[in-house]
Computed example of a mutant assay.
Amino acid sequence: MGDQIFLLSVLCMKDSWRAGIPDKDKTELVTSGIYRFSRNPEFLGFDMMYFGVLLMYCNLLTGFFTAFAVVTLHLQILQEEKYLAGVFGKEYREYRKRVFRYLGRKRS
């Protein structure tokens, strides 16, 4: 399921997909498709993959790697949110009011 969520997020992102925070690339804010339900579906997909591996092997080593990955990905999200707020301003702030960071829409 994590793989499918990640793939869907990449397909919805189209030309705005970037690895990391772009310094010079101008992208559009994507709020449609799966991004209507999660501001970070690609990271949600990764987290689900790590938790799936943890459930399959359920040992301290996979527990450590899962925790490390989830924390690292969350820190990446926080950096991207600062970048998006700076680049897209009000449009991004309004989007944040409507859609949760990981999963779900806020009631209006």
Rank of each mutant, 00 (worst) to 15 (best):
Y102F: 12
E28M: 07
V53D: 10
S16Q: 04
E81T: 00
I5P: 06
D23P: 05
R98Q: 12
K14T: 03
L8I: 09
L84F: 08
M48T: 01
G89D: 08
K26S: 09
D23C: 08
Q79A: 07
Y95P: 10
F65D: 04
L8Q: 14
L44H: 00
R105M: 12
S9M: 03
V53Y: 11
R93N: 11
T62K: 02
P41M: 00
E81Q: 12
H74L: 04
M48Q: 06
R18L: 03
F6M: 03
N59R: 06
Y92T: 01
S108L: 09
F37W: 09
Y57N: 15
W17Q: 14
I21K: 03
M48C: 06
E80R: 02
S38K: 01
F6L: 04
T27L: 04
C12L: 00
G86A: 06
Y95V: 01
Q79F: 05
A85G: 13
V30R: 10
G104H: 02
R107P: 14
V30P: 07
L78M: 09
A19F: 14
L29N: 09
E81F: 10
E80C: 01
F68N: 05
L29R: 06
S108W: 15
Y50V: 02
F64I: 03
S9A: 10
G20M: 02
V30I: 12
S16Y: 12
E42F: 12
F64Q: 00
E94V: 04
Y102K: 01
Y35H: 15
F46I: 04
K106H: 08
F46R: 07
F6C: 00
R107C: 08
F37C: 09
D25S: 12
G63S: 15
D3M: 09
A67C: 08
Y83N: 05
S9F: 01
E91Y: 07
Y83T: 00
S32Q: 15
K97T: 02
F43I: 00
F65S: 06
L103G: 01
M13E: 14
E81Y: 05
M56S: 12
I77T: 02
V10M: 15
V10S: 07
L54D: 13
R98T: 02
